[in-house]
Write a protein that binds this DNA or RNA. Structure first.
Lengths: 221, 221
DNA sequence: ATCGGAATAATTGTATACGATTTTGAAAGG
DNA sequence: CCTTTCAAAATCGTATACAATTATTCCGAT
């Protein structure tokens, strides 16, 4: 893997795992000295992250971790709701015992991370379950998009999620594997749709109220 | 629009309109003098185009217009087949007379370009019909992905399309508007799926045979 | 004490320089 | 005449320099 790619992965990991919260500034100087490369390489990485909506770059003001709007948050989840259940059908055709065991291991990793209170690992494992699943459906273009949506979902949860957003759904993933093992495509599709809906509705969108409430509190005090 | 963005648009346009064919090399020096900026700005644009799969960059060998593999070509179309019909449902809810007229104008542009033999304009108009339609479904994240898939489709057609790939489907678009005007969501979805299938099957995938045939021809002559 | 406003510091935008790698082309040997 | 080899040209990767813009701090005025 190229050096740029390694830096990209590290920063993305930090964002997705909520180490770098939404709104955090990412000055090129600090990053370049932290990674031991010149600003040139850092800029390249930041621009990539910006295209993928993990950071936003304002002209002459630099990069900061994206704080997705409520619209964006919902659209990311809606996109997954539209795509991922659809992938189940072609996924089911490739399903076999090896996959079943592999994904049970992934679920086990999730449980372990949850038990250890290791939220970063848990977030990664949860996202990975979804996009690894997407990959075996056989369409690399869609799989790449789903992978991006999964990571963006992690960022959405960082912005709007509660503790339950990340942990509540973990036990569930094993249920999907059961359905796939039973070759019950219909139910598996429905499960996936419900699962993503659950995550979507676990988001707390404070809307504009947050700012209004601040004003009101200022006036009332 | 920033200067970078303008350069990006121009190069993308040239690729999508088949002015820069798949495989064409894009040396940074030539581009930088052509656009009157330093290589820095060009590199930024090329790297963006690479992330979006319009060009491929090989280390120390530079950028060239992507020549999509057959797998990639099919996956791009399959992705559209999975997504675009699904968008019809939410699209239909926003449909109104203004949209109807707007899209009839777009179709008229397609016809005009076809009549004038202006393939570049025709390609743009055809892609635009699809992604403008996707936009009014109300999900910006998905719409952006569909837009990218439409442009990638143009590149796929540059690589594997016949003349009929670009022109045969033009008259059709008006039919979809009819169905939307009649509020016949079911048929509109089916139409979209069939339409994209038609495009997919109009591709000629020479597969590995091309190379073999070349050898055979060399021997037989 | 608080609110401008100017000077200074910090940060980004773009160009250029130089080393590294690849490609090209020509000359020498078979 | 063809192949091989090596030098030169072209091209890319990365660092650095300097200009442009933005953020911060400090000072004076109200």
């Amino acid at each position: 893997m190229s050096n740029d790619e390694k830096i990209y992965q590290k920063i993305l990991k930090a964002i997705v795992e909520h180490q770098l919260p939404p709104g955090a500034r990412l000055p090129e100087d600090r990053l370049s000295e932290a990674f031991g490369v010149s600003r040139t390489g850092i800029r390249k990485v930041l621009q990539r992250l910006a295209l993928e909506h993990f950071v936003v770059i304002a002209r002459n003001k630099g990069a900061q971790v994206n704080h997705p709007s409520e619209d964006e948050a919902l659209e990311v989840l809606d996109s997954r709701i539209l795509i991922e259940p659809q992938l189940i059908a072609s996924l089911q055709r490739h399903w076999n015992k090896e996959y079943s065991e592999y994904f049970r291991d992934l679920v086990e990793d999730e449980h372990q991370a949850e038990h250890d209170g290791d939220m970063a690992t848990q977030i990664q494992a949860t996202a990975r379950f979804h996009y690894e699943l997407a990959k075996i459906a056989g369409n690399g273009v869609l799989a790449a998009f789903v992978e991006q949506l999964c990571y963006r979902s992690s960022l959405v949860i960082a912005a709007y999620g509660t503790r339950s957003s990340v942990s509540c759904d973990c036990g569930d993933h094993a249920q999907l594997i059961e359905l796939l093992d039973q070759n019950d495509t219909q139910k598996a599709q429905q499960w996936m749709a419900d699962h993503l809906q659950t995550i979507k509705h676990s988001l707390v969108l404070e809307s504009q109220e947050e700012q209004l409430i601040d004003f009101q509190r200022l006036f009332s005090e």
